[in-house]
Structure formats: C-alpha cells, structure tokens
Design a protein around this nucleic acid. Structure first.
Lengths: 344, 344
DNA sequence: TTTTTTTGTGCAATCGTTATCGGGAACGTT
DNA sequence: AACGTTCCCGATAACGATTGCACAAAAAAA
C-alpha cells in the first residue's frame, strides 16, 4: 500500500515539501508556474493528502462519531440516513458505533471515537446508561456533543427529540376514543427520557378522559441480549391478569413485534380481543396482520437537525451559549390494529 | 480537548519518551521499578496511546472498512452485526459506509477508507457497479479485500456468498410443488452475481419440472433512489399480462415488500390469486399478512466468516495464495403466502 | 549606485509514537 | 589492568502535512 506523498512530489519536481504544500493549497506566495507544475503532477499521480497526518497535526478529523443502541432497527437506520445526508454535504464523515444498549460498550465506543479525534459526537443513550460522567468529562474538555432521541436530563447541550409526550397522548387518546378502557403500556427502561415522557403522555390522556391509572398495566422492559423471551413472558403474564387489557400501547419496534408475535402464537384476535398501537418506525406496518397503527417519529429529520446543530457547535465553538432542545412532531397513522370496539 | 501524551509522562517522571514508551509496552530492557512507576502514573492519568499517531507511523489502523449498499435493510444490518461481533473480539474496529447502490459513492467511500488506512475492506457491491478497477488497483497495491453477498466474478480473492442457486431452486421448486404454473421472478439488476445465480436456480427448477421458461415473467429491477414507484409499476404491468403469473418469487427485501404493497392496494388475495416467496431476511415475515414464505440468508454468519477471512488475510499476507469462495446454505421457511393451490 | 521592498522558495519545528542506534554503568572474565 | 557483557536508558529519526521564519534574488525606490 504505497501511496504518493507530498515528499514524493517534492523530490520528483526538485522542490521542497513546503513549496509543494503551499502550491497545492493555492497559496499566493507561490509562482503561478510552479503552482501549475505541482498541481498537474499531483493530479496526474492521483495525490490525496493523508488525513491521518492532518488529524495528528490539527487534532481534527472532519468526522463525527455516532453512538446509537443498534442499527438493525428502522428508527435508528433512518436516523443514520438523515445524519449522513447532511454530514456528507458539509464535508464531514460519519463513524457509526453500536452500544447494543450496554453501558460498557457505550463507554468503550466513546473513548475510542475520542481517541480517533472525531470533531463531535452524536449520541442516543444506551438503555442501561445511568452514569453520564464519560460524556460530561468530554464536554468539559470542549468536545461538542449533541444528544438525540434518548437524551439525558442533566447535561446542558443541544438535544433533538421526538415529541414523545404528545405522540403518546395521541396514541392513548385514540385508543380511548375507539372504546378501549383498559389500556396497557409496554415501554422501555425507566431511566430513559423517552420512557418518562411517553409515560406522562399516556397518563395525561387517561386522566383527561377520566380513566384511572393502573400501575399493573405498565411494564418496563429491558432491551438487548436475550431479553426477548423475557419480555414476551411479561406480555403473556399481563394478558392473564384477572382483568386483562383490551388495548396495548407499545413503545418500540421490538416490543411491538414481540407483542404481535405473542398474539399470533396464542391466537388472540387483533383488534377484536385487543387493540395495539406501536410507537415505532417499522416500514412494513401497513403489511402486517393486521395493519399496525403507529406513532411514527420523524427519524430522518431528527438525524438531520441533530447533525446540523452539532456541526454548528463544532465550527463556531464560542458563539453558542444557548442550547436548544428541539422537539419534532410525531405522526399517528391509524390502521386496522386499533379500530373497532373491543368485544369484551 | 487536551489529552495526556507519552511526552507529558516523560516530563513528569523525568524520563525520556522512549523509556516511557518501552515501559508501557512492558519491554524487557526496562527496569521493573521504572516500569511500575511509569505504568502506575499512566494508569492514574488515564493515559491512552493516540491511535492516529500509531496509524501514521505504521500505516496500520487496526480497523476494517465495510462498504455495503445500505444499512436500513435487515440483511445488511445483520451482516454488520456478524462482522462487528468477530472484529471486536479480534481487536479490530469496523467503519461502515453506505454506497446507496451508487457507483460514484462506492468509489468515494473506497478512496476515503483507504486514505484512512483501514487494514482491509469488506465489500458488497453496489448494484450499479460494473467497473471494478478501484478495487483491483487496491488489491494490486496489497490491500486485502473480501467480498460478500454481491461479489465480482473477475477478481481473485476470498468471497462469502449465500448459496443463491440452491436457495432459488428450492423456492421455485416449492412453488411448483404447490401447484403453481406461471412463476414470475422479480430480481435485482443483471450485473450482480446474486442475480445471475438466482436466475439460474430458478431456471433449473423450471426445467427439471418441465415448465418452459418465459422471459416475460422475469423482471430486473433497479435499486436505490426513487425507483420504488417504478418497480411497483413494473409489477402491476406484469400482473396485467394476458396470462398473469400465479406466483411470484422476489429477490430482495424491497422488492418483496413492494410486491405485497401492490397486492394489498389492488386487493389481490394471497395466496389464493397469487403466491409469493421472498428471498429476504425481513424479521417480521411471520407477522405479515399473510405470513411470508422466505428464503433466508445466514446474514450474521456470512458477516462473521467474511471478517475472519479478511483478518487472516491482513495478518498473514503472504501465506494465503489460495482464495476460497464460501457458499452458505439458505433456509426456506414455508408460510401461508405460498401454500394452497391457485384458483385459476 | 545604493537601499528598500517584493517575490519565491527552503528550513525546521510540530503533532504522538516507536525503532534504531548508541552510550554509560556495573559486573564478570582473562 | 584491560576488555567484553549485560542492563537501563536517552537522543534521534522517521511517519505526512502545515507553517512561521529566514533568506536569496529580483524588482523597485532612493
């Protein structure tokens, strides 16, 4: 893997490396003829500056790190597409890491990305992360970080989230207006911002329509690893309560599909016996059996806005004193899984 | 972003940088006491070697580049998970880039990854790539490359693929044995290896069961961009042939869901009017309406094997003269979308 | 003609790390 | 006493690119 360097050009043209460097950057102090000579030679030899050498010199890399729980998930892969589309146009590269919802891997990825001199970080927290010092230390050292979707409460920086409260409220309200009385909520671990926000929207809707909140209808589920079976067991347990729910509002892709699997396996008819609304970005929601009512998050746009904020932070470090939290509207799409009255 | 360097340690401990460097690498020529001193100080100050400096020095990065068409796709995201799981254990980092099925972006990503000194490349070709010189040049310069899934014919290196021929044969055979006579095949662009292999399996099955091959039942579809609508139009066109197919065998996630969308929109009953089998890794195949018969590729395992081959190539450059092409078994899972005789 | 300015180029330091070379001290061997 | 080993450690040169400074030659001003 020999690549051509500035030194090779200098030698070939009988110039010094500094002259070559300046010629390539089109500096005013270089003779136009020399410039032309250098540029043409560089072009011909397909010279590309070594970004590693530049990173070492400047402690900059023109790249941003993204840490997300997992990529095999519609929401997050759309998020990445949004991030990449903008970053690419602004000349930044995107380096993606998965935390797999593990705190340790989140920390390891963070350290690695920092040592690789990324210019900034885009983070959606792992569901098991409660300790945030690894991010706080970096921010104190001046590394720009923008959080998105799963954001921490006690770190002051830009954040981009979906309007989880309203999304959740609308989903719950829709179930109520469809005649459901016992609405369960299957959600993510309690530490996450998305969990509390969605729970609040759910509670508020119940309250507004005079339905008492029942803790036994709420289940916080873990992510990652071999938890799927456990979650499905929890679902089945809830279904065998003395007064089983007649509707279920799930907070993620995985939980939604897990639920539907349970329903299918146990022959529970949807929406006749139970309605379901998912807070999910599954792309094939309309092809499911039955077509699934969803609260969709504007994932692509969230990614775009977050990366814009981050790059602003990177390129104008001092200017930004005010941090903003952008909350983007979700979209409730009503399909067959939640319509029609419960038969119970 | 000031980080502690070997120089800082040297200054603090009144040693030279070389001594510190050697002490940290536990060299035999350093006094155990000095070693201890250095190591403890480094530990206390949370010293981490700068990987950029190392990359610059060694032209190595302990990282491998992955270029795939897109990540918002079950097959490819599973592939990545397989790659990461192995790479992580072997001390390599994984840098992911999407070609979005564009030749230009594939080339751009390749160049960037190379300039970033990745130690090797894992590639699944963009569907519009016909010119392979950007890979050939790199291989001549000694950069290890392993292809997977969408592999080139005329490059000699390790390759990992699914057994597309057999997978396709079994899918077609299954449709034939279920009583289908006019089996259409919706597939990827003709340049791709997966396309020709699957087509061959499809043809062989038809031949073995005495069904004449009809070119008008085969449609090569483009990927990427705003092609979806165009593909769906092609599907509708095929459905309005004088003798429309009574079964359809689709070659990818996108084409499969596109088909099912058309069926749903036009109220075509599956499997009564038409059967469908997808060559796809959609995770919710069993939740679709109707549950979808699929040929699943062992995506995770393909990723694992490919990265193993690549790292072997990286770490033992001379030893490998024989290149192998591993072909992994697919799994046909029969569900409702393809059972029951056609009513026609 | 002499002095000053401008123009074009090279030198050397820098970023963090390691490999190469070499050297001093302490010890053992003739 | 003279020499060779062994043990520790330091100075230096890379890796590729940029940049402040120096400096020569040429051009302009005196």
């Amino acid at each position: 893997m020999e690549t051509i360097t500035i030194k090779d050009i200098a030698k070939a043209l009988n110039l010094s490396t500094s002259t070559v460097s300046r010629a390539l950057r089109n500096s005013y102090e270089i003779n136009p003829e020399t410039k032309k000579l250098v540029m043409e030679y560089a072009e011909r030899m397909n010279y590309r500056p070594n970004p590693i050498a530049l990173s070492l010199k400047d402690s900059k890399s023109k790249s941003i790190g993204v840490i997300i729980p997992e990529i095999a998930n519609h929401f997050f892969s759309q998020l990445i597409n949004g991030i990449e589309s903008i970053a690419y146009n602004l000349g930044y590269h995107v380096v993606i890491f998965q935390s797999h919802d593990s705190y340790e891997r989140e920390v390891a990825n963070t350290n690695y990305l920092v040592s690789r001199r990324v210019d900034g970080l885009l983070v959606s927290l792992a569901s098991l992360t409660t300790n945030l010092v690894h991010f706080q230390e970096l921010m104190e050292k001046g590394l720009p970080i923008v959080f998105l979707d799963r954001v921490p409460n006690d770190i002051e920086t830009h954040k981009v989230v979906a309007d989880n409260f309203t999304g959740s409220y609308e989903a719950t309200e829709h179930l109520i207006l469809s005649g459901r009385k016992r609405i369960a909520h299957l959600t993510s671990p309690i530490y996450l911002s998305i969990t509390t926000e969605r729970l609040a929207g759910y509670k508020k809707a119940l309250e507004d329509y005079g339905i008492p909140f029942d803790e036994s209808y709420v289940k916080y589920c873990l992510y990652g690893g071999k938890i799927e079976a456990e979650n499905e067991a929890a679902i089945e347990e809830m279904l065998s309560l003395p007064e089983p729910p007649d509707a279920i509002f799930t907070a993620s892709d995985r939980l939604t599909t897990g639920c539907m699997s349970v329903f299918q396996r146990k022959g529970i008819r949807v929406p006749e016996e139970i309605a379901i609304v998912g807070f999910t970005n599954i792309s094939v929601a309309n092809l499911l059996n039955p077509p699934l009512t969803t609260v969709m998050q504007p994932a692509m746009e969230m990614g775009q806005q977050a990366v814009e904020l981050l790059i602003r932070l990177i390129e104008h470090p001092q200017k930004d004193e005010k941090f903003e939290t952008r909350s983007l509207k979700t979209a409730l799409t009503i399909r067959a899984s939640s319509v029609g009255k419960s038969v119970v």
